[in-house]
C-alpha cells in the first residue's frame, strides 16, 4: 500500500518563534483513516496546514499523493489543492450562495459541464444526507448541517484524501457524532481521511489510528482508538 501522506523529519516554526512542530515523521496509508489529537497549540492545525500547503515546512519534507510539497512551485499550488478535500472548523461556506452553489464551487473551478455539476452535487449532498436542501442558504441550516455541506463540498470532486481541522469544534455532541459518522462512511468508501480533533471521547469509540501531538512532537501513535490514549 502506497502512502497518501508522508511526513519525514518535519519541523515548522513561524518566523523566529520556537518550533510549532519538531521532527515529526509519520505515514498515512492509502485508504487509511487517522485522527490527530492534542491540546490547543500542540500543532494539530499546523500539521494539517502543511498537508494542504497553506504553510511550507521549515525543515524536512511532506509528500502528499506522490507530490513533494517542499519543491512544488507556487503557481501549481491551486492545482495541488484541487486534489484534496478540506473541511474547516468554521465551515467556510459562502453564505450568500445556496447549498447547491457552495457544493458546486470546486466543480466550477475545474470547469465541469453544467449538467454534470448538477448530477455530482446531488450525489454529494445525498451522501451526507442533505438531498432536498440544495436551494437553501447555509445560514438557514443547523451547524451540523452546515458542516455536512462543507464535507459535501470537500468530497464532490472525489478526492483521494480528505482532511478536516476540528470539524466538530463548533457543534453540539449529537451533531458532532453525525459528522464523524459521515467521515467514517467516506473512509469505508475508500477515501483516506485525516482529522484533527480534541474530541477524544468521540473518537475513542472509533476503530482508527490516533496520533497524539504534544508540544509539537508525536508523543503517541496508537493503531486503534480503542486503547486508552490518556497519557
Amino acid at each position: 500500500m502506497t502512502d497518501i501522506v508522508h511526513f519525514h523529519r518535519l519541523s515548522y516554526r513561524y518566523g523566529d518563534s520556537p518550533d510549532v512542530l519538531t521532527d515529526v515523521s509519520f505515514r498515512l496509508g492509502q485508504g487509511e483513516m487517522a485522527f490527530i489529537t492534542g491540546h490547543s497549540g500542540a500543532g494539530k492545525s499546523t500539521l494539517l496546514r502543511l498537508v494542504a500547503l497553506l504553510s511550507r515546512p521549515t525543515r524536512g519534507q511532506v509528500v502528499v499523493n506522490g507530490i513533494n510539497l517542499s519543491t512544488l512551485p507556487r503557481r501549481r499550488v491551486p492545482e495541488f489543492r484541487q486534489q484534496i478535500g478540506i473541511v474547516f472548523q468554521s465551515f467556510n461556506l459562502l453564505n450568500d450562495r445556496t447549498v447547491h452553489d457552495n457544493v458546486a464551487l470546486p466543480l466550477v473551478i475545474r470547469g465541469y459541464r453544467h449538467q454534470d455539476i448538477g448530477r455530482r452535487v446531488r450525489a454529494a449532498l445525498d451522501s451526507v444526507g442533505l438531498l432536498g436542501k440544495e436551494k437553501m442558504l447555509p445560514l438557514m441550516l443547523s451547524g451540523g448541517e452546515q458542516q455536512r455541506v462543507g464535507i459535501a463540498r470537500a468530497i464532490v470532486t472525489k478526492p483521494a484524501l480528505l482532511i478536516a481541522d476540528e470539524p466538530t469544534g463548533n457543534l453540539d455532541p449529537q451533531m458532532a457524532r453525525d459528522v464523524m459518522q459521515v467521515f467514517e462512511r467516506f473512509h469505508q468508501a475508500g477515501v483516506s481521511v485525516l482529522v484533527a480533533t480534541h474530541a477524544i471521547d468521540l473518537i475513542r469509540r472509533m476503530p482508527h489510528r490516533i496520533l497524539h501531538l504534544d508540544h509539537g512532537r508525536i508523543s503517541q501513535d496508537s493503531p486503534s482508538g480503542f486503547q486508552d490514549t490518556a497519557g
Binding site: 491551486p78 484541487q82 467556510n92 463540498r153
Partner: peptide, 16 residues
Amino acid sequence: REEIMVMKLIGAPNSF
C-alpha cells in the same frame, strides 16, 4: 475577502 479566501482554500487558481 472571505469568498476569495475560501476559493483559494479549495484550490481556485488566481485566474479563476
